[in-house]
Amino acid sequence: MKNLKKVSLYLLALVAFGFASCKSEDPTQENDGEVITDVTLKFQELNASNALVGSVLSFKASDPQGIEVGKTPTIQSINLAKGKKYQMTIEVTNAIENEDITKEILEEAAEHQFFFLGQVFDSSFLSIQYADAGGIALGLKTIVTVSSSTGTNNSSMRVVLRHDLNKSFPGATNPNFANFVQAGGETDLDITFPVIFS
């Protein structure tokens, strides 16, 4: 009986300790490291000898809070001149973490690829080819040619960034590959920019 009392005391102490030490941690602010808040398309004209001329035109899509319900991203319209040829570069940043994601995409070029779709290509207003260093199909740098006779002045271009895809999937070397989903992977970016021709 004496032992029993002792044992129950130990038990009680253990349980009391268990309950007392069970407390949740204070929450910490978690910055979304992976969120893309800003995507900038930069266009610079190429002359007949493929040299860069003129000033850089920037068009931006941004979503300052990343993915947050109730907020919609702001997307600028792209203004391009008919009959001209441009070099397009894409810059991707996370303004929350102040991080340059372009660099990460370049480092993981084997797992990423941009695809360019939408009416501008369907109606042949634009044509595009990959121009990344090393001749890889990535899309951070492309050459865009604007048709000299677009039927309309208003159109749209869809920019998709795929991650973890099979880049050697048949057809995937085409920047306008509409069936990119079949190459596997998932979408990191899917933005439709309005395009205005002048």
């Binding site: 899509a61 941004s62 979503d63 991203p73 970016l189």
Partner: peptide, 8 residues
């Protein structure tokens, strides 16, 4: 649907 830079 909810629209973001990542799609819908």
């Amino acid at each position: 649907t909810f629209v973001s830079l990542r799609g819908t």
